[in-house]
């Protein structure tokens, strides 16, 4: 039945993805919610929040604000916080509430920008999409609003898109991502200097480690000629999964994760002699990065049926609940956007 989930619990939503991209960059990120959405982010989806210094605040919308359309009150609250923190930019992140009441986030941002003299932009999330869609929107807005190229790109660092905790935690800590791409690598989402914030597209080339970064990488390529490659660094979690599968060379294997991580593990398994490896995902599946037969899931029943065709599944432990009927091997590969800190 469309939309009905009896085994799988909700994954990290789009606004959590947007917040993950913006959290440490030095701006003020405001979730246009009553408090519950920001609770999801701060309590479960943003592991850097505890003790962190990022400015991620809730609009604390109340029923009368929504019914009476008191956007001016929200603007005053945002301006109050912006004045206090001296933030480099302001981002308004959408939620189901701002979406249902038709809040014009773009107009609010224009007004905030006029008042503060600093860039303000909206991320039009609605809590319906998943985290990678929110990340995709946030990356695009960053590049469109703060991306002007002002340096010689040949001398600049490598940019890394799609390396938020939601994409990589449990597989790769950020320091390993940085070690892999070199100490000068710029992870989009890193704390930024003012110069960097005015020139986010000032990179030599981009590496895209989750599909959420593809749209921004393509836009930078089209607009600034910055080339990109998709990639995901080899990690201990991959090696553990490969070890578990080493005695099953003829098995049909399904890898469930975000597409770039799953692709990288597939290549590793193929290099070790596995011939039949399929990538499946509940998140974005870019057709240019997919092979024929790769699977995109949106429905629990279809997911359960599809999995039965495989001999082994490599996936986050939370998926196991939906696989009661599955007789094959279940190999663990954590995905923070799926199970948060439950298994990490």
């Amino acid at each position: 039945m469309k939309g009905f989930f009896q085994y799988l619990a909700p994954f990290a939503p789009d606004y959590s993805g947007a917040a993950a991209v913006l959290y440490e960059m030095g701006g003020l990120a405001v979730l246009c919610d009553p408090g519950g959405c920001s609770g999801n982010v701060c309590g479960y989806d943003e592991p850097r929040f505890y003790g962190g210094s990022g400015a991620l605040l809730s609009a604390a919308l109340r029923d009368l604000d929504a019914i009476l359309g008191k956007d001016g009150a929200l603007q005053r609250k945002v301006l109050g916080a912006a004045a206090q923190g001296g933030y480099a930019f302001t981002a308004l992140i959408g939620t189901p509430v701002s979406s249902v009441i038709g809040m014009d986030l773009r107009a609010l941002c224009r007004s905030i920008e006029r008042e503060t003299g600093r860039t303000a932009f909206e991320v039009n999330t609605d809590g319906i999409g998943l985290y990678d869609q929110g990340q995709r929107k946030a990356y695009l807005q960053l590049i469109r609003r703060l991306g002007a190229v002002g340096t010689d790109a040949q001398d600049a660092a490598i940019g890394v898109l799609g390396a938020t905790p939601l994409d990589t935690l449990g597989l790769l800590p950020p320091e390993q991502v940085r070690a892999h791409y070199g100490p000068s690598a710029f992870l989009y989402g890193d704390p930024c200097t003012v110069e960097r914030l005015g020139n986010l597209a000032g990179v030599r080339e981009n590496r895209v480690v989750s599909p959420s970064g593809l749209a921004a990488a393509r836009e930078m390529e089209a607009q600034f000629g910055i080339r990109y490659q998709t990639d995901f660094p080899r990690c201990a979690a991959f090696d553990r999964a490969a070890e578990r599968l080493s005695g099953r060379k003829g098995a049909r294997i399904l890898i469930l994760h975000q597409q770039m991580a799953a692709n990288a593990l597939r290549e590793q398994l193929e290099a070790e002699g596995h011939a039949d490896v399929t990538v499946g995902t509940w998140f974005l599946l870019d057709k240019d990065c997919a092979r024929e037969g790769d699977l995109s899931f949106a429905d629990e029943d279809a997911f359960i049926d599809a999995v039965q065709a495989f001999d082994a599944v490599v996936a986050d432990p939370l998926y196991a609940r939906a696989l009661e009927r599955f007789a094959g091997a279940f190999v663990l590969l954590e995905h923070f956007a799926v199970s948060g800190d439950l298994y990490i």
């Binding site: 909700p10 994954f11 789009d14 309590g43 479960y44 189901p96 609605d126 319906i128 439950l342």
Partner: peptide
């Protein structure tokens, strides 16, 4: 609900 409203249930429900 939209999927986001169930997110904290994913974690606390399991715990």
């Amino acid at each position: 609900a939209p999927s986001c409203c169930g997110r904290h249930g994913t974690i606390t429900g399991n715990k």
